[in-house]
Design a protein around this nucleic acid. Structure first.
Lengths: 221, 221
DNA sequence: AAACATTTGTCCGTATGTATA
DNA sequence: ATATACATACGGACAAATGTT
């Protein structure tokens, strides 16, 4: 009789980690709205744990910029306004441009193939009008390049920014129709520049691939 | 009789904040060495507080990448090796290049003057052979540009990287003679590009101003 | 193999500080 | 101005997990 035995797969999340992941999801998807007050005792009861792991999770969310803790007063979900998009995307673009530059000089043929595969699935998702799946494929394409750059700081900062961008889309857009076919073509151009070992071109295209949606989003709102 | 009454100046740091600042200092200056085990109970006694604020401080330091927490096993000071410098500086340079680009289009004449003043004091410190003061003046110059870019993500990420770079210098260099006079000239060139409202040039020089010391440091070690 | 020592994780009670009636 | 309610900050004890004897 086969025993599941995947004890160490998600390595048994601690209460703190579960609380962190759940509260973060609630903030991103709008269940917890901007400026809404967070009371640790309430969250503790809602998640079936004590206040300690909740407080640790809120501390992490504060560092990430999703929560504001006013000692002795209140803890609230950080407010958001549309101009945040003008602060988020340039940093995101710079980080990914750097990651692209680094990855271009490290990438292996089989990893290039994986990027092509991800971009193909990205294109399919757009054609099949599945905006959420398209967004995820787009993220996977970008995240693979970031991972391949093998730089913990880039990946860490990138994850933080990506979380805020995701929240922004959830709060301001009903649908997530942010992916366009021109993005597929830019991805292809990035891959081509990587194949030609041209880090300058690759990173320049990557930057545009992220700054263009910023402008489109900003006009849209 | 005049009462000091500076209650809100440092706004009375919490135990968590004091613990965080102190442990961080100990890690940066090498009092707590790489791979050294950190026992929260010991730190709690040493700092005269309970384990709770210590654990919160360690959590923050873990996010910052200065500490590794292995649940149930141990908490240790993160190890460091000289190749870290090749990961830190490119990210630092990208962030400061972006900050420079943004600040160039926002900066006011009086703020330009302040940059000139900081660079003059930076030059003096080098001439007077005061390497630590020179490092601080250099940091103030860069940090002012970052602050003026008015982007919370840039300043937050920049602070994290700067902390690691500082630790690197403490661990691998006895003296902090990392500032050279060519850096003063590059700062002057950045200021000049800003005065001419040339963000491309300003950010390019800024990038070089940070990548050059990276290569010098790497060769030195 | 099992009991033990050690360290982190969690719970809950209390103190402190703030805002409001 | 005082007291009261309420939320966060902190403390101390217990539980859980890991490695060892």
């Amino acid at each position: 009789m086969p025993i599941p035995s995947d004890f160490s797969s998600p390595s048994r999340m601690s209460a703190k980690e579960r609380a962190y992941a759940q509260i973060q999801r609630w903030i991103i998807d709008g269940t917890l709205q901007p400026k809404e007050q967070l009371i640790d005792a309430e969250l503790a009861e809602a998640l079936g744990v004590s206040r300690t792991p909740i407080r640790e999770a809120l501390l992490l969310l504060e560092v990430q910029g999703l929560v504001e803790v006013h000692p002795g007063k209140a803890t609230i979900v950080k407010d958001i306004d549309k101009d945040d998009i003008l602060k988020l995307y340039p940093v995101f673009a710079s980080l990914h441009a750097l990651a692209t530059e680094i990855t271009t000089s490290l990438i292996l043929p089989e990893q290039i193939e994986k990027l092509k595969m991800l971009n193909a699935r990205f294109a399919e998702s757009i054609e099949n009008k599945q905006p959420y799946q398209a967004m995820e494929m787009d993220e996977q394409f970008h995240n693979l390049i970031v991972e391949l750059s093998d730089n913990l700081y880039i990946s860490s900062f990138s994850t933080t920014i990506q979380t805020h961008i995701r929240r922004f889309k959830y709060v301001f857009l009903k649908q997530h129709e942010t992916s366009t076919y021109s993005s597929v073509q830019e991805h292809a151009a990035i891959i081509e520049a990587m194949e030609q070992s041209d880090p300058i071109s690759a990173s320049a295209i990557m930057k545009q691939n992220l700054l263009r949606p910023m402008n489109e989003l900003y006009k849209l709102i």
